[in-house]
Simulated assay, not measured.
Amino acid sequence: MLDTHARKYVQPFIGGAAKALLKVGLTPNQVTIISFIIGASSGVFYYFGLTIVAVIVLWLSGFLDAVDGTMARETQTSPFGTVMDVTFDRLVEISVILGIAFVFPDVQWALLLLSVSIIFSITIFLTVGAVSDKQGLKSFYYQAGLAERTEGFIFLTLMMVFPDYLLPIILIFFVIEVFTGCQRFLEAKKILK
């Protein structure tokens, strides 16, 4: 929801960073890889007790993830770039979930449910994007929903920063992901006739 409706407020910063990185000669795919490496370190930092560092690198990777897309649209998008972007996004999320799971094994069952809900929602998102004739600013149809990447980052951050409330945060995130998957499924039924 925030990615769809609040992007216009942060786009000037994203666009400025995209121009600067293009100026120094980086390609969108290189920034995607840098974003992935930074983001994947988040779970590792969290595991070693560096919560603030984990949160900072998570959000830095999210910012660079937005920047690489803007860079691609200003130069040339590539199908493989899209595959890398979507794949690496999930791996960054998995890194945080694994970091939390190793620190708090008693909530692994809830993290497993959360992971399943993310798989459910992203499967619908990607399938609709692949089979839809519609196309937006991205290289595929972007199906908005209640939980998009920014909401995911907010919940992952809350999970890392407030361990005393970890289980309820995970379960709320789970419910929101399931709702988003159902929301996307119902939209798919309407647009894919």
Score class of each variant (00 low, 15 high):
106 D>W: 04
38 I>N: 03
67 V>A: 07
127 T>M: 04
70 T>R: 12
143 Q>C: 13
116 V>M: 08
134 K>L: 10
151 E>D: 09
111 L>I: 12
153 F>V: 12
153 F>H: 11
42 S>L: 01
43 G>N: 03
48 F>Q: 08
144 A>K: 11
87 T>D: 09
48 F>M: 02
131 V>N: 08
94 I>V: 15
150 T>A: 11
118 I>Y: 00
67 V>N: 09
157 T>F: 00
152 G>V: 05
70 T>G: 00
68 D>E: 13
43 G>F: 01
102 F>I: 15
107 V>A: 00
155 F>H: 08
60 L>G: 05
113 L>K: 04
135 Q>G: 08
100 I>H: 06
121 S>V: 13
142 Y>E: 07
110 A>P: 11
149 R>M: 04
78 S>Q: 06
140 F>R: 07
146 L>H: 02
72 A>K: 08
79 P>L: 07
75 T>A: 12
77 T>V: 13
103 V>C: 06
44 V>T: 11
39 G>I: 04
153 F>S: 13
151 E>W: 01
97 I>R: 12
64 L>R: 03
99 G>M: 13
151 E>Y: 05
114 L>T: 10
128 V>L: 11
110 A>I: 03
39 G>E: 04
70 T>V: 15
93 E>S: 12
101 A>P: 09
73 R>H: 03
126 L>K: 09
72 A>F: 08
78 S>D: 05
84 M>H: 01
61 S>L: 05
147 A>F: 09
138 K>Y: 06
94 I>S: 06
109 W>A: 15
114 L>G: 02
72 A>T: 11
38 I>P: 03
158 L>A: 15
152 G>T: 14
128 V>A: 10
116 V>C: 02
85 D>G: 13
147 A>V: 15
135 Q>P: 06
46 Y>Q: 05
126 L>C: 10
124 I>E: 02
63 F>M: 11
91 L>D: 11
157 T>I: 10
145 G>H: 01
79 P>Q: 12
49 G>M: 03
90 R>G: 12
138 K>L: 13
95 S>Y: 06
103 V>G: 10
133 D>R: 10
141 Y>S: 10
